[in-house]
Simulated assay, not measured.
Amino acid sequence: MKIKTYNKISKKGLNLFPVNYEVGDALEAADAILVRSATLHDIPFDPELKAIARAGAGTNNVPIDRCNEAGIVVFNTPGANANAVKELVTAALIMSARPIYPAIEWLQSLNETADFNKVVEKGKSNFIGPEIAGKRLGVIGLGAIGIKVANLAVHLGMEVYGYDPYLSVDNAWSL
């Protein structure tokens, strides 16, 4: 089996394929395509192509109509990167509440200060920000990522409101 890759795909994941699979970005006449964000709308497909796997939640970069006509199976991997996105959202929440980046810049500007400890003690109050505990957070979309963000926000002491008109029973039980 030949699997053509588009974009940089983690070696950790690629190493899970059996040894008799050929996997790479230079393959011709592939049986399958593995893609992350590259758009396939203008790429011609080999007649041997059987499947396209999208390493991500959506399939907007895959020409679904053309695949349907050619009998090419298309699937995605929703939730595969949900934990990483949850962590980035958490970092953004905290950085939006507190002036972390300006504080880092200020500290870096003090690298030659003789009385470093005194200056830091005196100036650190300029970078106080509100705690996120007790704040309200709205999460729109309670899929794999939304659930993780909502649950973490609750653990951080936030009041969380969620909205998802397509919420599944399994996802509801995960909240």
Rank of each mutant, 00 (worst) to 15 (best):
G134K: 01
A103L: 06
E69I: 11
L40P: 06
G123F: 01
S109P: 05
I132G: 01
N151I: 09
I33K: 01
A150Y: 04
A53C: 15
N111P: 00
N151H: 12
G143L: 02
A91L: 12
V154I: 15
G146W: 06
P47D: 15
K135W: 03
T39I: 08
A103Q: 08
Q108N: 14
I100H: 07
A82S: 13
A103V: 04
V73G: 03
V62W: 02
E105D: 13
G143M: 00
R36A: 10
G123C: 09
L152W: 06
E121S: 13
I94G: 01
L34H: 07
E48F: 10
V35R: 00
V149F: 04
A32G: 12
V149K: 02
V149D: 00
A80V: 14
K148P: 00
K122R: 15
R98K: 15
I132H: 02
V89S: 12
D46H: 13
I43S: 03
N81Y: 04
P44Y: 05
A91W: 10
L142I: 05
T39K: 11
I128K: 14
T59S: 09
E28A: 10
V149L: 02
A92R: 13
L40Y: 05
A80L: 11
N83A: 09
S125Q: 14
K148R: 15
I147P: 04
N83I: 12
N83C: 06
V73P: 00
L34N: 04
L110V: 06
A38F: 10
A80I: 12
A80G: 12
A70Q: 14
I140W: 08
P130L: 13
P99R: 00
A114V: 13
A32I: 00
D25Q: 12
G79N: 05
V35G: 03
I147M: 07
V73F: 14
D31F: 02
F127L: 07
K135H: 09
T59C: 10
G138Y: 03
E121K: 13
L137G: 07
V154D: 04
V73W: 06
R98E: 07
Y101D: 04
G141R: 01
Q108E: 13
I132L: 11
V154M: 11
P102F: 01
L107I: 09
V149T: 01
E48Y: 08
S109D: 15
M95A: 14
T39P: 05
I104E: 10
A70K: 15
T39F: 09
N60C: 03
F116G: 01
T39V: 08
H155I: 05
F116M: 09
C67I: 02
E28F: 06
